[in-house]
Amino acid sequence: MNFNTLKQVRQQVYDSFERGADALFNLCDALRCESQARSLPELSYSSFFEREWSSLYQALSNGKINDVALRQIWVKALLARIPESQTVCISVDASSIARPEAETSRDRGIIPVSNLPRAAKPISVGWQYSTVMLLPEVTSSWVGILDQRRIETAQTAIEVAIAQLQALVPLIKHPIIILADRWYATADFLRACKTLGCQVLIRLKRNRKLYRPAVRTSTKGRPPLDGPLFQGSRPDTVGGVEASLMSYDKKGKIVTVNRWSQLHVRQARDVQVRVFGVQREGAKDSPN
């Protein structure tokens, strides 16, 4: 993003602040530039926050942001240089922020915490956020955030992700592929993506149950709704490979990709699923 575009985006962001705009915009600059600040009082001392400390609290309690306009600004800015005919990949995922000592904070819930010592419980208290990101064409740790929302304790990550996609996808004129982790392989999420006209690439748990097309073997009784089981953890169910490709990775190890089509989950028989299985020689118990 060049300097002129950045200035234009900053002005548009400022215009989306409908109440308390000056203090809110100063706070955004302070948050972006003061990486060592640990509290609101410390942010109020930032050289980028040009007002008295009380303005910061007033902005957070009385400020108003036009969420719809802000979402449109970033979608337009992040996709400006990508031709409309080019497919874009967006991902959705939930992340946690632990706040075990913030006893007065609203709507904290139990959240998972990874990479803890074995003796520690892998849970804490805090918030969860759902983030929809524009993935770069070249492998990178930098992504463009298209939308981010708090997952309230009365909601699930799937519900929030669907609401985000329903708001975002109509703003994107490009063909879309949605990438998600295995927790999103649910009937509701798959059906929502189909309704939005998006392709989806989701990791599957090995024990996830899928079903082939139903085959009627008797003229008596109701026709079956599901065909034979397909489950990765049961090798006897994964026969009938539709297509297979073998190649080599950078280390010269054999990589085999198999494909199965016309599968479905029981709760969404109207959504067809295609499964790709990847096998790499020497990959068992390997970190790479």
Score class of each variant (00 low, 15 high):
L229T: 06
L229W: 07
L229V: 14
Q231Y: 04
Q231P: 03
Q231E: 13
G232P: 09
G232W: 14
G232M: 13
G232F: 10
S233V: 12
S233Y: 05
R234G: 00
R234K: 14
R234P: 00
D236T: 10
D236M: 08
T237V: 12
T237N: 12
T237S: 10
T237I: 10
V238Y: 04
V238I: 15
G239R: 04
G240Y: 09
G240I: 05
G240N: 04
V241F: 02
V241S: 00
V241Y: 01
E242Q: 06
A243W: 14
A243P: 07
A243G: 05
S244E: 14
S244R: 11
S244A: 09
S244K: 11
L245S: 13
L245H: 14
L245R: 08
L245G: 02
L245T: 08
L245Q: 11
L245V: 10
M246S: 14
M246A: 10
M246K: 13
M246F: 02
S247I: 01
Y248G: 00
Y248Q: 12
Y248T: 06
K250H: 13
K250R: 09
K251T: 01
K251Y: 05
G252Y: 04
G252L: 15
K253Y: 07
K253S: 14
I254P: 00
V255I: 08
V255P: 01
T256P: 00
T256Q: 04
T256V: 04
V257K: 07
N258D: 13
N258C: 11
R259G: 00
R259K: 13
W260K: 08
W260V: 05
S261C: 11
S261M: 12
Q262R: 14
Q262I: 02
L263P: 04
L263C: 03
L263V: 02
L263S: 03
L263W: 05
V265K: 09
R266A: 15
R266I: 14
Q267M: 15
Q267F: 06
A268L: 04
A268I: 02
A268Q: 06
A268R: 10
A268C: 11
R269K: 15
R269L: 12
R269G: 12
R269E: 13
D270W: 03
D270T: 15
D270N: 13
V271R: 12
Q272C: 11
V273P: 02
V273Y: 02
V273Q: 03
R274M: 09
V275G: 03
F276M: 03
F276S: 01
F276I: 00
G277F: 05
G277W: 07
V278K: 01
V278Y: 03
V278R: 00
V278W: 04
Q279V: 15
Q279K: 14
Q279A: 12
R280L: 02
R280C: 07
R280T: 01
R280Q: 07
E281L: 15
E281C: 05
E281T: 13
